[in-house]
Write a protein that binds this DNA or RNA. Structure first.
Lengths: 174, 174
DNA sequence: GTCTATACCCGGATAGAC
DNA sequence: GTCTATCCGGGTATAGAC
């Protein structure tokens, strides 16, 4: 039924709001239900459980980041540097969603088909088709983002310079 | 009092065992106390709370990883590659401790003085004193480790090749 | 489809007896 | 210095009335 899908999207929307505004720790069935003006038990008439809601958010995250990457690279020459900037921007704009997408094993069976691949494609292309280099570049970007989000760099650290150093190193290999 | 310090180390030892064997989710005051043959409330006579125990584990982790890095680099020519291998080995040998050390902001005020700096030194040295390159290299290694621990790479991915590609790129800049 | 009520876990931490 | 008893919070999920 179409209304069932629409209801699932409504629930995902509420969950997304809770996640972005209050963080992963606050993403509970009770809080999501509260946003929708209902009680937690009522959610189980529409979704199987919390995992399904999270998978929906992760699929959304992949689609949104893929769109951002594709747009950034559309008219750019220096794809690696452009992509790195877009990657960082997405993660910093949606830190809780980014964490949800990366801090645990992916619930691949529950994701919308193809979304993971679509987000990965621009990275592989920017690495000139070299999958090993693409994985190294992804790891570099992910590491920079997570260390920044977790406040692990020293207070005065010049992160733009660190990003530039990493991108420059990776570019020479392309 | 010396006995108080010894008791703290005993508690840290039990906590370390719980963490390594059962993961961060199982690291509770109740579980730690159980290992020591006592009840959770008794722990509060020796430590201020869970945060203090975690900080002890993190300090230990820094000291152990620093020692491993120093030993690896002692007789090596290719410091960046050697250090990368040692970094990966430490993280894979102690995945839960590594997560505890990196997934949240550091409780710097509770750490033993100097341990963070000691672990960072070999990385900076391997980067030839270039702190931006050192941070990029750290981010690359951290990203590789976390993506591997979280099972984010495709099943058949050649991670050795990805590590090699990243190290080679960083080396050219040194 | 939503509700109330509930059952069952888990956690950190404290009070006060001994 | 350890205990029991307890308080507070959190969570997922189910049963059954409406």
């Amino acid at each position: 039924m179409a209304s069932s899908v629409a209801r699932t999207r409504e629930i995902a929307g509420a969950a997304r709001a809770v996640l972005e505004e209050e963080g992963a720790a606050a993403l509970s069935m009770r809080r999501v239900a509260e946003r929708l003006g209902m009680r937690a038990p009522s959610l189980y008439k529409h979704v199987a459980g919390k995992e399904e809601i999270e998978a929906e958010l992760i699929s959304d995250g992949f689609e949104e980041s893929a769109a951002a990457f594709e747009e950034a690279c559309a008219g750019a020459h220096d794809h690696l540097a452009t992509l790195a900037a877009a990657y960082r921007a997405f993660a910093l704009a949606h830190p809780h969603l980014y964490r949800l997408m990366t801090e645990r094993p992916l619930p691949r069976a529950l994701l919308r088909p193809g979304v993971e691949e679509r987000a990965a494609r621009p990275v592989i292309d920017a690495a000139g088709g070299d999958v090993d280099l693409a994985r190294a570049a992804w790891a570099f970007a992910h590491g920079m983002v997570m260390l920044e989000l977790n406040g692990r760099f020293p207070p005065g650290a010049d992160l733009d310079a660190a990003w530039a150093a990493g991108v420059a190193a990776l570019q020479e290999r392309r």
